[in-house]
Amino acid sequence: MTGRKRWSTEEILEAAVALLRTGDAESFSVRRLAATLGTDSSSLYRHFRNKTELLRAVADRVLLTAMDGYRPEGDWRQRITALALCLRDAFGEQPELAAVWGRYGSGGTGSRLVMEEVLQALRASGLPDQEIPARYHRVVILIAALISSEAGISTITPEEYEQGMEQFRVAVLGADPERFPALSHFARDVRPLGADRRAAFEEILAAQLDDVGARVR
Rank of each mutant, 00 (worst) to 15 (best):
T81N: 12
L63I: 11
G105V: 11
E93P: 03
V58M: 04
D75R: 12
A121Q: 04
G38V: 14
Y45H: 08
S106R: 04
S43L: 13
W101G: 02
V62M: 06
S42P: 11
L97N: 01
L127A: 11
D89F: 09
A121T: 07
G69E: 00
R112F: 04
R46K: 13
R49F: 08
E96C: 03
E73K: 14
D40H: 15
L119P: 09
W76F: 12
A59T: 08
E96G: 06
P72A: 10
F48D: 00
R123M: 15
D60Y: 00
P128M: 07
A121R: 08
A90S: 00
Q120R: 15
G92F: 05
T65W: 01
C86A: 12
V62H: 03
S42Y: 14
T52D: 14
V114N: 05
G107I: 07
E53N: 09
V118A: 10
L97P: 01
E116I: 15
D40L: 13
S41E: 15
V100R: 03
L83C: 03
Y70L: 09
R123E: 12
L119R: 15
W101T: 02
M67A: 01
R46S: 15
S41Q: 15
G69F: 03
A66P: 06
S43H: 11
D40P: 15
M115Q: 10
T52C: 08
G108T: 04
Y45W: 09
A121M: 07
C86F: 08
D60E: 03
R103P: 05
S111K: 06
A121W: 15
L55I: 02
S42W: 14
R88T: 01
R112C: 02
L119I: 11
T39L: 08
K51D: 04
V58K: 05
A66K: 13
R49N: 10
G92K: 12
R56A: 00
D75E: 12
W76R: 04
R71W: 10
D68L: 10
A84N: 09
S106W: 04
Y70G: 01
L85R: 08
L119F: 12
I80W: 06
E116P: 15
T65Y: 05
A90M: 05
P72L: 12
G92P: 07
G69Q: 03
L83Y: 09
L83H: 02
Q78P: 10
L44H: 09
G110N: 02
L85C: 14
A124W: 10
T109A: 14
Q94P: 05
L63T: 07
E117R: 13
V100T: 00
H47V: 10
S42A: 14
G69D: 07
V58G: 01
S43A: 15
P95K: 01
E116L: 14
P128L: 11
T65C: 04
L44D: 05
A59V: 04
R61H: 05
L119D: 15
R71Y: 09
E53C: 02
M115F: 12
A124L: 13
A98Q: 03
A90N: 00
L55K: 07
L87H: 05
L87A: 03
F48Q: 01
A82F: 14
D68I: 08
S125A: 11
Q120Y: 13
